[in-house]
Nucleic acid binder design. Structure first.
Length: 198
DNA sequence: CACCCGATTATCT
DNA sequence: GATAATCGGGTGT
């Protein structure tokens, strides 16, 4: 499998969010490889999206969202958790990123269980805060280029049949609830259980 | 299974 | 000073 090239991310954020389903997220920690299939994602845009960190313009926290596509935007939230996003947008749009909400673990499961301090396979990486903990992703990874084979990269996985993907409103936000920008693979056991299907 | 709540702190207003 | 792109544990049905 090959690393996804930068052109993939240089498209409509919503389309890329959907297309990331089925791709393989890889995390290199020392000499260990941790990986999983992306099974849940959310698109966040900019001036047209009140729920996005970039809605009101560039700040110290969100500046990666305004930068080159194909980089990781990692932020800290609720005083406890990190969330991993991939910058994606068309040239004409100032900012945009995709929140990786859940992966189906493939490689390095034992190491992920150590990072998470749990043996429960189905609650290991089924949430944005859980998967960053399982993959040992923190603000140190903010800005890393996921198009290069370095700390974090994404591989072409298997094509997902359109009929097995659904779109819903996004989780944990209070505005723009009408926008159906959360994508998940239906019936995948590793999707967040907080399912709000409209 | 559903709802409720506390944890804990960087970031923004 | 308030909020937050969350999680896990608790209680009740």
């Amino acid at each position: 499998m090959k690393i996804i090239t930068r052109e993939f991310y240089n498209r409509n954020t919503i389309v890329v969010a959907k297309d990331l389903l089925g791709k393989i997220l890889v995390r290199v920690v020392g000499n260990k490889i941790l990986s999983g299939i992306i099974v849940e994602s959310e698109a966040y845009r900019s001036i047209d999206d009140p729920a996005s960190h970039s809605y009101k313009g560039k700040t110290e926290r969100n500046n990666v969202m305004f930068g080159e596509v194909g980089h990781a935007y990692v932020y800290f939230t609720y005083g406890i958790h990190y969330c991993l996003n991939i910058v994606a947008k068309e040239h004409s749009i100032p900012a945009g990123a995709i929140l990786i909400r859940a992966i189906e673990p493939i490689e390095g499961i034992e190491q992920m269980q150590k990072f998470r301090k749990t043996n429960d396979l189905y609650n290991l990486t089924n949430g944005p805060g859980k998967l960053t903990k399982a993959l040992n992703v923190t603000k140190k990874q903010n800005g890393v280029d996921v198009v290069k084979k370095d700390e974090i990269y994404i591989l072409n996985g298997r094509e997902i049949d359109n009929s097995s993907i659904i779109a819903t409103s996004r989780i944990g936000i209070s505005t723009a609830l009408d926008k159906q920008w959360r994508f998940l693979i239906t019936s995948n056991k590793f999707v967040s259980r907080r399912v709000r299907i409209n």
